[in-house]
Design a protein around this nucleic acid. Structure first.
Lengths: 255, 255
DNA sequence: AAGTGGTCTAGACCACTTT
DNA sequence: AAGTGGTCTAGACCACTTC
């Protein structure tokens, strides 16, 4: 029999009954993504080999390969030649700077020191609820913190997280935890950020911001409003950061 | 004969004599890139089909395919099923907004109106020369312009371009030209921007900027310093933009 | 030596566009 | 009907890691 004639799409309709053509490798990709989301393999863990997955899904290795290629391009998994494919994790140096875009004008980038100002549970304001795709009044965790580089306070950040997903999150756990916050979210709360959108503006420091960042009132600051998403494009974090750009800048690549 | 045994890399050294392994498809990719750079196929034009290229380079279609896949991922070419592969061009709606990151807070994005303030040829200041990888004192074209959305001046931009590459560039040609500036550079000067890096800061409007953008002095503005590159990672543009972010924001995707 | 991801090939067929 | 890019397969071999 000809190989391609065993393609379940040969009848012109996808296996879901939809009339439009859906490549096999994308269906496989969706299945693997579901397993990732369900936690069948945890962040940092080794996934089954391409050969195993091909057998499991009854497709050729090349088809599994193409599915994993896309997952790797989206930073959901990491391939390592000779070792295998691993579930991506925020507990890696390389992942840290993908979401920390503020770099020093001179010198090598390093991790900021964190000072937690406030953690509380509140009802979501309308604007927050809208961006997090919640109902107004739903519980959210509110976090306020300041990050410093070389002792100089540089980032004033406020976060809003769906209360449902972050039940045991307290100031203590946030302070205790060493490493990036997304690592904490991933390990302790099973919520993995995979992409985000940011809207950036220039604003003047109000009195509170000026005090936290030790600048004078009215100093121009970068204001970055971030909405982060986990699997299935579900919004799971709203973050508003005020960046002092006296000795740092927001680095971006256009391509 | 076994197919793979005809791989010229089988001896463990690349055809360039380097000791490290270099996949065939990357060599093909480099050859195609050279043809793009040399202008063998112009922006917007149809390229040879995968079958033709495979014959030309004496490799399988799959190998050419993988090379073109990467070129498409880097936005150097555009694939269109049933039609062929085309050289990417800035004369397309889709390309415009890849380098125009400032979007309106509300409503649909549209193209700005341009007002050219100044065009002159000068000797490159040290800082400009450094970023453009020129010698200090080399000739550069300096451009200053204001861009408006709905009649409201929003972007004050200064540009520095290597004089060598932009010999006939005058204010007249800049004003006459309809469409995005990168389109002009591509068609009239044979220089195609393919990627850029930006450093973004918040600054206060100085007196000149305040006047051009019709805001009060000291108003916080986004300052975006862009270095653009053409084939071979050669820097070909320095651009410093001041953005009024009262009704617009810089939109970015993190992934 | 065995297992993994990575490369390359050859061939078939599908989806889409144009003739 | 013919040509293009897109998908899928099967098989071989390479580079790298581990045992």
């Amino acid at each position: 029999m000809n190989p391609a004639s065993s393609n379940p799409n040969s009848d012109g309709t996808g296996s879901n009954g939809s009339p439009s053509f859906r490549p096999l490798y994308q269906q496989i990709k969706a299945l693997i993504t579901q397993s990732l989301q369900a936690g069948e393999w945890k962040p940092g863990e080794l996934m089954p080999s391409e050969v195993e997955l091909a057998a499991r899904f009854k497709v050729s290795q090349g088809t599994v390969r193409k599915a994993i290629d896309e997952l790797a391009a989206e930073n959901l998994v990491v391939r390592r030649q000779g070792k295998g494919t691993f579930v991506a994790t925020h507990h890696e140096e390389r992942a840290h700077f993908r979401f920390l875009k503020l770099l020093p004008d001179e010198g090598v980038p390093h991790h900021p020191d964190n000072r937690v100002i406030e953690v509380k549970r509140i009802r979501a304001p309308a604007e927050v609820a809208r961006l997090l795709e919640l109902k107004a009044g739903d519980a959210v965790v509110y976090i306020k913190r300041v990050q410093s580089f070389d002792g100089a306070p540089t980032i004033l950040e406020e976060l809003w997280l769906p209360g449902q997903l972050f039940k045991g999150l307290t100031a203590e756990r946030l302070v205790e935890y060493k490493g990036p916050m997304y690592g904490l979210f991933e390990s302790e709360f099973g919520t993995r950020m995979i992409r985000a959108t940011e809207k950036i503006r220039a604003v003047g420091a109000d009195r509170a911001a000026a005090e936290y960042l030790q600048v004078s009132e009215g100093t121009p600051l970068l204001c970055a409003e971030r909405v982060s998403f986990t699997y299935g494009d579900k919004a799971v974090e709203l973050r508003r950061g005020l960046y002092s750009t006296a000795k740092h800048h927001y680095q971006n690549e256009l391509s």
